[in-house]
């Protein structure tokens, strides 16, 4: 019961072997698998984080793009409005000029026509007067007939004018 002998040495050798065996065949594989799993979980978590970050970045980019689009849109609209306004002014101004020209031209034409008519009438009148004077000088016709003739001629002339 209370003896110490060579078995003490055997026991110590046994215990050393026991330690090596347990460490190598029990703790090591189990700890390895646990740390592998932890690493796998960590990697997966990291991946999820990365994906989330990427999604966030894409969202941000999309929002930026949207903002740029809006800015571009309002800029284009403003430009178009500006252009339209300018064109409108131009058109209106052109129209005004054209109308003025037309009015001027027609006024000129009317004046010319008037002058022409007046000239013609004067010629006619001159002709008539000449005729009347010729007749009054050449023939002895009474004044009454002369007047009638003059009036008839004048009426013809004015008809031809109109």
């Amino acid at each position: 019961m209370l003896r110490l002998d060579i078995n003490l040495v055997f026991t110590i050798i046994n215990l050393l072997i026991w330690y090596v065996l347990i460490r190598k065949f029990l703790f090591k594989p189990v700890n390895k698998i646990i740390s592998q799993r932890e690493a796998a979980i960590g990697a997966r978590y990291e991946e999820a984080q990365k994906l989330s970050d990427e999604a966030q970045a894409a969202k941000q980019e999309y929002a930026d793009f949207q903002t740029r689009m809006d800015e571009e849109k309002s800029r284009v609209i403003a430009e178009a409005q500006e252009e339209a306004r300018a064109q409108y002014k131009q058109i209106v101004a052109d129209a005004h000029t054209r109308a003025d020209e037309i009015v001027e031209e027609s006024q000129k034409e009317a004046k010319l026509q008037k002058e022409r008519i007046i000239g013609k009438a004067q010629q006619e009148i001159r002709g008539l007067i000449l005729d009347a004077a010729e007749q009054s000088l050449g023939s002895a016709q009474n004044d009454g007939a002369l007047y009638d003739q003059f009036l008839a001629k004048a009426g013809e002339a004015s008809h031809a004018e109109s």
Binding site: D5, I6, N7, F10, T11, N14, I17, W18, L21, I22, L26
Partner: peptide, 16 residues
């Protein structure tokens, strides 16, 4: 002489 305790330890080691 190999004592009983050493042999039992061997058995424990083998089983584990």
């Amino acid at each position: 002489g190999i004592s009983e305790s050493v042999v039992v330890t061997w058995i424990i080691m083998a089983v584990f």
